[in-house]
Simulated assay, not measured.
Amino acid sequence: MTADDGHDGAQYLAGSPVRVSILRTLRREPRRPADLTDAVDATRTTVQRILGGFRERDWVVKRDAAYRVTPTGKRVHEAYETLLDEVALADRYGRFAADLERVDAGLPPEALDAGELTVATDRNPLAAVDRLTELLREGRDAEIRAVSPIVIQQFNRAAAAALDAGAEVELVIDRDVAETSVSEFGPATDRALDDDDATVYVSPEPIEYGLFKRDDVACVTAYDRRNNPRCVFESTEPIVTEWVDDRFESLVADARRLSAVVEEA
Rank of each mutant, 00 (worst) to 15 (best):
V200Y: 03
D5W: 13
N124M: 09
I173M: 02
D8Q: 13
Y12M: 15
A128F: 02
D194K: 05
I173C: 01
F212H: 06
D246E: 15
E110D: 14
I50F: 15
P187N: 07
L84K: 05
A65W: 10
R24T: 14
G6S: 10
A253R: 08
Y80I: 08
A160R: 15
P187V: 07
E242K: 06
R145D: 06
C231W: 01
E86A: 11
V40I: 08
V61F: 04
D85V: 03
G210V: 08
P71D: 08
T189E: 10
A39M: 04
A90D: 13
T70M: 12
D174N: 12
P238M: 09
A218V: 03
V87A: 07
R75G: 02
V261P: 04
R28W: 01
A265C: 01
T72L: 10
A120E: 06
V47H: 08
A159T: 12
L171T: 11
L83W: 15
S235C: 02
D58A: 14
E110K: 12
A65G: 01
D254I: 08
R68W: 10
T189G: 06
A160G: 12
T199H: 10
E138I: 01
V172E: 04
A146G: 07
V232C: 06
A161W: 01
L36C: 03
L83C: 12
L171W: 02
Q153C: 00
P17R: 04
T189R: 08
R75F: 05
V20F: 15
A42H: 05
P206F: 10
A178R: 07
T180D: 13
S250K: 09
V87N: 00
Y93P: 00
Y201N: 03
V200I: 13
P187M: 07
Q48F: 15
V151P: 00
P149W: 01
A10V: 14
D197S: 12
A260E: 13
C231E: 15
A222R: 02
P33I: 06
V252H: 05
V40R: 06
R75A: 12
E234P: 00
R57P: 04
I50Q: 15
A162C: 09
V47G: 08
K62G: 11
E179A: 14
L26S: 05
I239P: 01
L84M: 08
